[in-house]
Computed example of a mutant assay.
Amino acid sequence: MRCFVYRSSRREQTYVYLAERDAFDSLPAPLRGALGELGFVLELELGPDRKLAREDPAVVRANLAGQGFHIQFPPRVEVSDGE
């Protein structure tokens, strides 16, 4: 499965994977507004053997097939209370 990855201009470390290049209409309008301008980062083949640094490729493929997009949010930061 080929996909296209874009970086959000408003949300640091937030990426959008699209099933079709520049298919921004597949994103709900409120989400498009929250992400701001999306800048193209890369095109990749997302086959069963493909590994991704921060996402489960099977989940990304399922989201692309089901809704046409997948959102990669920044990693959660664990905050210690000093104990």
Rank of each mutant, 00 (worst) to 15 (best):
M1S: 15
R2L: 13
R2F: 10
R2G: 00
C3L: 04
C3H: 07
C3Q: 05
F4H: 14
F4K: 02
F4Q: 02
V5L: 06
Y6H: 04
Y6D: 04
R7C: 06
S8E: 04
S8N: 04
S8T: 09
S9I: 02
S9G: 12
S9H: 03
R10Y: 11
R11E: 13
E12H: 10
T14R: 02
T14W: 01
Y15D: 01
Y17W: 06
Y17T: 07
Y17Q: 05
L18H: 05
A19Y: 02
E20S: 14
E20N: 12
R21Q: 10
D22C: 11
A23K: 03
F24Y: 14
F24G: 01
D25P: 00
L27K: 01
A29V: 08
A29H: 06
A29M: 07
A29T: 06
P30W: 07
P30L: 06
L31V: 15
R32M: 10
R32H: 08
R32Y: 05
G33D: 09
G33W: 00
A34L: 09
A34R: 08
L35P: 04
G36L: 06
E37T: 14
E37V: 13
L38D: 05
L38F: 09
G39H: 11
E43P: 02
E43Q: 13
E43M: 09
E45P: 00
E45V: 12
G47T: 15
P48C: 04
R50I: 00
R50C: 08
K51E: 14
K51T: 10
K51S: 15
L52E: 12
A53Y: 02
A53I: 15
R54D: 07
E55S: 09
E55F: 05
D56S: 14
A58Q: 13
A58H: 12
V59G: 01
V59C: 06
V60N: 11
V60A: 11
V60H: 08
R61Y: 03
R61Q: 13
A62C: 04
A62R: 12
N63S: 14
N63H: 15
N63C: 14
L64T: 14
L64P: 10
L64D: 10
L64F: 10
L64E: 08
A65K: 11
A65L: 14
G66W: 11
Q67I: 12
Q67L: 08
Q67S: 01
G68V: 05
G68I: 04
F69H: 13
F69N: 04
H70Q: 02
F73H: 12
F73C: 12
P74V: 03
P74S: 07
P75F: 00
V77G: 01
V77Q: 02
V77R: 03
D81C: 11
D81V: 15
D81P: 10
G82Y: 12
E83C: 05
E83F: 09
E83K: 04
